[in-house]
Nucleic acid binder design. Structure first.
Lengths: 202, 202
DNA sequence: GTCTATATTGTGATAGAC
DNA sequence: GTCTATCACAATATAGAC
């Protein structure tokens, strides 16, 4: 049984993840990461050689894991409505644990697509199966005719967008009231399910 | 009648806007802006003193204009369904002209909220009237009971999210096929309207 | 492994000629 | 107004002692 140790390497990884997600690759400072990890700047280079490699060391496994979870669900053989419900639950849960992640990923992909794509995809992930399932249910007349890609994008949008726009929502809709925003985020699982179900049933 | 001139100042503003939106404030380089504008780096400082002020000079009027348009529509006295339809048309049109703007704004707000808030809000903008209108229609039984804030956020989400996530959608859903993505974006106005109407009517 | 000190390069900003 | 040259400092990265 291995005892959990706060090794320098682990401290660095945790600190770097925090700073990168908060500031973005360009805004992140090696000095700040070192301070956050409680070690010296030189040690970052000892463990990870340079900023780029440190970035990859964190987000390669993180992204893969994120997409693997979603992928497993999408590829499963569950009925459509159950799958949608689980999809929403899964997304909201994961993002609630990592609320800054969507905005971070969105920005980094725009900023440097190649760097992120090489980390994100091992080629396995694709929502194709879910899109096909939409088509089948439409053909069977179980849901109203709707372009599957648009449904897919709308579903992802209502899940992810509130996290990306959280600071703006807080300001514009809730006048900075943190409690109201928290409660709003809690309610969303149920609200999204109702919204999507109504949108796709006849 | 004033003849349109490509003055250096105008060139700088256009170049800076392009580079800032593409790279973000942290990623933008004064040198790159100068090159893009076809002038020297020193001239940037001659006209705008520093990077921060250059940033503000561009985005203060741009943001104000963006929100003023939306605000005018939201505050108008049109019937709800017509207002939603126009809201979607307006958003998609503006964003189609500035596809990188949503991601840029989202990132800059997270990165440095104060800098952006002072540019974005003169205090006048608020979707309160639209939210109240939702409540009234629910009370009258014209649309199904739905938390107005969630409806508001869902409406904005399906409009804006595809722009923020465009590079990812292009890769994951359309396998990089630019033509299919373009067509998809064209269709969205109609698709979103159908989607939202179905989601809110009984 | 961890540190201090330093090298090296990048980047915003200024001085001053024209 | 526009340029070249340069400064000052910030940031990544390395050298070398312990």
């Amino acid at each position: 049984m291995k005892i959990e140790q706060n090794t320098s390497e682990q401290n660095i990884l945790a600190a770097a993840r925090k700073v990168f997600v908060l500031k973005g690759f360009d805004g992140a400072r090696m000095q700040e990461i070192a301070d956050e990890a409680g070690i010296n700047k030189a040690l970052l280079h000892y463990y990870f050689r340079n900023k780029e490699k440190l970035f990859e060391a964190i987000f390669q496994p993180a992204f893969r894991k994120l997409f693997a979870n979603i992928n497993e669900l999408v590829e499963s053989d569950k009925p459509l409505l159950e799958k949608i419900s689980l999809f929403i639950d899964n997304y909201i849960d994961v993002l609630s644990q990592n609320p800054d992640l969507p905005g971070f990923i969105a920005h980094e992909i725009n900023r440097n697509p190649d760097r992120i794509y090489s980390l994100l995809f091992d080629g396995s992930f694709s929502p194709a199966k879910l899109i096909i399932q939409f088509s089948e249910e439409i053909a069977k007349g179980n849901i109203r005719p709707i372009a599957p890609q648009h449904l897919m994008v709308n579903l992802i949008a209502v899940c992810i967008f509130p996290f990306i726009a959280r600071p703006m929502l807080s300001k514009i809709i809730f006048q900075g009231d943190q409690l109201m925003l928290d409660q709003f985020m809690q309610e969303r699982k149920q609200e999204i399910k109702q919204f999507v179900i109504h949108a796709i049933t006849k």
